[in-house]
């Protein structure tokens, strides 16, 4: 797939996204102005955003795969996964209060995350390669935030908006992958003491490692690799759940412990 936007348009759209992310306001989806925008354009804008953040002193800590489960694709009305980058500025500790005043439409989902000990290079990366290169896995909650007005978006705009990445929380109990049957790991998402979503990790492309392999192969298309020591979230097992100030969220995982966070103003 080819880019259709020129350099000037990419920079302008990147600045629009950066403003919306940094100041927490909603903008119309980018395809309203550029209806023929492609996925490659979306990734070009996302790459520009990543370079800007790194120049500003943010540290790249890893990547996330998004829209990797049928529940998520159905919820978002899209038919293919996407990826986004993660920086230290997006990380929040477990058992903390996460501010919502700097977010637009915050929603949470529970995921299995991987920490790598060897670099991974596509194309042709497989789930088996990912498991070989994994140091450990751990549970994670991702707080996603779409910056597009009225939740109206398409995959091209979402990719430009860094896959709706906003905040992430890794925690719970780290485990070696060899000790687990990842696809059958069950997960329950509770909000204010009530179970709101449940599923098993197989919901993510039959095996969460397959989502990481997909991510490595998309990186390869962008001429990049996944360095050793990366933190990678494999995508929501369940549909995402909206949160507001005062909400308490717990993600409980079979064999991997739990993560608890609260949301404040």
């Amino acid at each position: 797939m080819k880019t259709t936007l020129d350099r000037e348009a990419i920079v302008r759209l990147c600045e629009r996204i950066e403003g919306a992310q940094t100041s927490a306001y909603a903008i119309p989806k980018l395809t309203d102005e550029y209806p023929s925008m492609t996925m490659a354009d979306g990734y070009a804008i996302q790459t520009e955003l990543r370079k800007r953040f790194i120049e500003q002193g943010h540290k790249l800590v890893g990547w996330k795969a998004g829209l990797t489960s049928r529940a998520k694709m159905k919820q978002m009305g899209v038919d293919q996964p996407s990826i986004g980058f993660l920086t230290d500025k997006m990380s929040r500790p477990e058992n903390s209060v996460i501010s919502t005043s700097d977010l637009v439409h915050p929603r949470v989902e529970c995921e299995i995350a991987f920490v790598t000990r060897e670099k991974l290079v596509g194309p042709g990366c497989t789930a088996e390669d990912v498991l070989q290169a994994t140091d450990y896995v751990l549970p994670a909650i991702e707080v996603i935030d779409s910056r597009f007005s009225g939740f109206k978006f398409d995959l091209e705009s979402v990719v430009a908006d860094n896959g709706s990445s906003a905040r992430f929380v890794g925690g719970g109990r780290p485990r070696y992958v060899e000790e687990l049957d990842l696809p059958t790991i069950g997960a329950v998402l509770e909000k204010n003491g009530e179970i709101v979503e449940m599923g098993a990790a197989a919901a993510v492309m039959e095996h969460p490692a397959a989502a990481v392999a997909m991510l490595v192969n998309i990186l390869a298309e962008m001429g990049e690799e996944l360095p050793a020591g990366s933190f990678v979230m494999s995508g929501g097992i369940t549909a995402a759940v909206a949160v507001s100030p005062g909400d308490h969220v717990i993600a409980r995982f079979q064999e991997l412990g739990s993560i608890s966070i609260r949301f404040g103003e």
Binding site: R70, P183, T184, I185, G186, A187, V188, M198, G199, A200, A201, A202, A203, E206, I237, R252, F253, Q254
Partner: peptide, 16 residues
């Protein structure tokens, strides 16, 4: 918390 993965004719059907 035990996951339940259901396949129909080799394809993922649902998880719980």
């Amino acid at each position: 918390l035990a996951g339940m993965v259901l396949h129909k004719n080799g394809e993922l059907y649902s998880t719980s």
